[in-house]
Design a binder for these strands. Sequence first.
DNA 1: TTGACATATTCCTTTATGGGAATATAATAA
DNA 2: TTATTATATTCCCATAAAGGAATATGTCAA
Lengths: 120, 120
Amino acid sequence: MPRLATTSDVFNAVAEPQRRRIISLLSRGDRPVNDIARKLRVRQPQASKHLNVLRQVGLVDVRRQGRQRFYHLRPQRLKPIHDWVSRYERFWTESFDRLDVYLKQLQANNPTGGPGQGPM
Amino acid sequence: MPRLATTSDVFNAVAEPQRRRIISLLSRGDRPVNDIARKLRVRQPQASKHLNVLRQVGLVDVRRQGRQRFYHLRPQRLKPIHDWVSRYERFWTESFDRLDVYLKQLQANNPTGGPGQGPM
DNA sequence: TTGACATATTCCTTTATGGGAATATAATAA
DNA sequence: TTATTATATTCCCATAAAGGAATATGTCAA
C-alpha cells in the first residue's frame, strides 16, 4: 500500500513544509497568489502548484477578484489530523509513570484480557 | 525546498498510512516485529523498514529481548504535530461567523495595521 | 485591437519512497 | 556443531512528487 496522493490525503498534503507555510500565512487572511509567492520566497508557478494541491485536498478554496485569485483557508480539513494526534496527547500530558508502562506491557502480552485502553 | 526526509521530519514520517497504523498499534503496548507485521498484514521486511523510519525519526525505540525486538512508542515526538495543528483548532471550535472572516480580510488588505491575531 | 499584469499549466529532470524478493545477521535450541 | 527462529538489510523496480523554465490562459486598461 503506497502513500496516498497529496491531493487526497491531508496528512500527506501537509507533509510538505512549503504547504505548511502557506497554511500559516492564509490563517491570517485570504491572499492572492503573488502575495503568497512573495512572502514565502518561492516562484509564482510553485506557489500555484502548491495551492492547487491544497485546493484539491480541500484545505483551501479560491475566490476570483479581478485578475487576482484570493486563496482562503479551510481549517476544518485539519481536524482529522488534530483528532488523530490528539489520541496520543495524554501520553505526554498525564504523568506517565512506570506502572502505566508495566500495565501496558501486561496487556500486550495478554491479547485476550483487559479493557481496551489506548487509541486505535 | 524539497520535502524533508521521512527519517527526520515527523510530519513526513506520519504521512504514510502504514506507519500511522503501527503507531496506533504500539500505543496499546510494545510489540515485536512479527507481531506487528502479522497484525497489519504486511511482510516482515516492510514492517522492519517502517519501524526503522519511525525509530530514526524518534517515534519509537527498541528493546531487545531474546531474539525478538520489542518496539516501543515515543508519543512525545507527536507533540510538534499536535502543537502545529492546534494553532488552527479555534477556527473549527469557536463559532466562526462572517464578521470574523471580514475582519481577517481587512487585516490582510492592510498590511501595516491591526494586532497580530492568527497563528504564525 | 494591443499591452501589461495575474495566474495556471505543461514539459522536463531529479530524487525520495515504498514494495518485492532474496539474503544477511543474530540469537536460541538441539 | 547445525538447525531454526526473529529481524535486518540489500538490490531492484515503479512511481509520486517537487522544482525550473517556458508557455498558455484570463482579465483589465488604453
